[in-house]
């Protein structure tokens, strides 16, 4: 029974392993190496600088700025899209009219490419021609400088992120809801619980594993935002939407600081890694308390 199938196994694994080595392992090692040198990409001058790229990075205000913006975006998108997604899933899990039509409409943004969505939203947010400001104007509210104000711009970009994520979260929640046994609710009904109470004390806790999964997925995804900012604002105004991805793109590909750019990549990795661990840990603690 314990017979080994080494040859067969490695034959199956061969193609993926080759790709893995060439397009994953080598770049990762190369990237680590790059982050310790100063190099502009074409000159023969490669200087080993130790941790200097990281030191430069952590003493650069632009980096902190980008970092904070990226976190704000990530937190906003994760929180809002999960709350709205959960509520929608709850409402759309019931047997109501037009259920599948609603689901479709909420889901369409998920399959829309971010770059194309960015182009549309850029026009939606246009300060004087955009439909949003026209509407605000119509109900006698002042126009909002969606993409031209340093604080509003983060909110605007996040709204697009939320818009794109709601449908995904909703669908995952719906399938999680369907796996909740109706017995729980029946038990509750016997105790005379209201609908709100049922949602609060049964649905939400039972969805916890799904929520954790969605939080981690959304966090990892949102932290790497690039497309929509590239298309919508290119980092402006005043660098207010200059997220880390854009910062890396500029340093690594436009200015040609390959070492510095790689260092940004590793910091992004370190942060995502740490954040995921912390989320898992918090979750575990929460479970112990229960």
């Amino acid at each position: 029974m314990k017979k080994k199938d080494n040859i067969t196994a490695y034959l199956f694994l061969m193609p993926v392993t080759v790709l893995f080595l060439i397009f994953s392992v080598i770049p990762i090692i190369y990237s680590l190496y790059l982050s310790f040198i100063m190099w502009n990409g074409f000159s023969i001058n490669k200087k080993f600088v130790g941790f200097n790229n990281y030191v430069l990075l952590f003493s650069n205000n632009e980096f902190y700025h980008s970092f904070i913006i990226t976190i704000v975006y990530t937190v906003l998108v994760t929180t809002l899209s999960i709350i709205i997604g959960m509520i929608l899933a709850y409402l759309l899990n019931k047997n109501i009219r037009f259920r599948s039509l609603y689901r479709t409409m909420y889901f369409i943004p998920v399959i829309t490419a971010t770059a194309a969505a960015g182009v549309i939203w850029k026009y939606m947010f246009d300060s004087s021609q955009g439909i949003i400001n026209k509407f605000l104007n119509f109900i006698h509210l002042p126009a909002v400088p969606w993409l031209s104000h340093p604080i509003w711009v983060i909110i605007s970009i996040s709204l697009v992120g939320v818009w794109k994520r709601i449908g995904f979260n909703m669908v995952i929640y719906i399938s999680a809801l369907q796996s909740i046994s109706p017995l729980y609710y029946e038990a509750c009904e016997i105790d005379g619980a209201t609908k709100g109470q049922k949602f609060r004390y049964i649905t939400v806790p039972l969805l916890k594993p799904t929520t954790l999964l969605l939080v981690i997925m959304s966090f990892i995804d949102s932290f790497q935002i690039f497309d929509q900012v590239y298309v919508m604002t290119n980092g402006g105004p005043m660098g207010a939407s200059d997220v880390l991805g854009l910062y890396l793109y500029r340093e690594g590909f436009k200015v040609g600081h390959l070492g510095y750019g790689s260092a940004i990549g590793w910091v992004i990795f370190a942060f995502i890694f740490a954040a995921t661990l912390i989320q898992l840990k918090i979750n575990r603690k929460g479970e112990e308390v229960y």
Binding site: S24, S31, W266, F269
Partner: peptide
């Protein structure tokens, strides 16, 4: 090893990958 690379964002690899 395979799973581990799932944790590594594309941004880590993108510069070397482009160079390759």
């Amino acid at each position: 090893a395979f799973l581990g690379t799932m944790m590594i964002p594309f941004y880590v690899e993108v510069i070397p990958l482009y160079k390759i």
